[in-house]
Amino acid sequence: MDFFAGIDIGASTTKAIIINEKRQILGHSVNDSGSDFEASADQAFRKAREDSGCLDTDECTVVATGYGRRNVPYANNTRTEISCHAAGSFHHFPHAHTLIDIGGQDSKVIRIDDAGKRSSFKMNRKCAAGTGAFLEEIANRLKIELGKLDGLAEKAENSVQIGSYCTVFTGTEILAKIREGIDVADIIKGIFVSVIKRILEMDSMNGNIVMSGGVVAHNPYLVKMFEERLGRGIFVPPLPQLTGALGAALHSIEIRGGQNA
């Protein structure tokens, strides 16, 4: 049996996915990227293979993507995360749409046409605003587990106004809010609003919107807030954090000349 793998070595986490020729997902895995990209790729790949029953790496065609894409020596090819996210998203939503991916250190807005081709893309500028790193920093400042942000935001009755672009200055703003005795949940909701605003500034949001990425996977309430702001529904793929890895796996079918490639 042929297996097709996509490994997405992102700035924060490494994702691996294994699919078959029919593009069915057989296994997947996520772990921290840490400081050794090659080791983190190995770990994610091994776990995904175990899930999928792919025992022999030779059975597997591998495409690597993400910041660490050049650190996978056994990859048959590499593609940028922008191409892979677009391919992964189009797999689930095969019509024209705009994909918003919020990752650990970057956010992307990718326009995809009816044929699945990218017509444009934008990445955040050299700044953590509107990315997972922003949420991590704020969670750390407030000594709140990252996994609890979503629940807190959902509980909030109000949302504080955050004025600054800058992650560090936002930290200072938050200190002032704490001094004023504002509820932490309201602060977190304000932080979510800040992330949404940064994304909305990147491009105009026309047509169908799909959201993916680790921040989306772990914070479904942020997607709900985004929908409220846009005034319409947003599509989210089944494994939002693995969209790039899935796109890479789909490319690996193409390079093997697999089904319908």
Binding site: Y67, R79, T80, E81, I82, S83, D106, K117, R118, F121, M123, K126
Partner: peptide, 22 residues
């Protein structure tokens, strides 16, 4: 200090990938 090598190169590479599919 205003230039991010990794981000710039990923953007260029993705841009060329986009041209390839045009």
């Amino acid at each position: 200090r205003c230039y991010s090598e990794e981000q710039a190169k990923t953007n260029i590479e993705a841009f060329i990938e986009q041209l390839e599919t045009k």
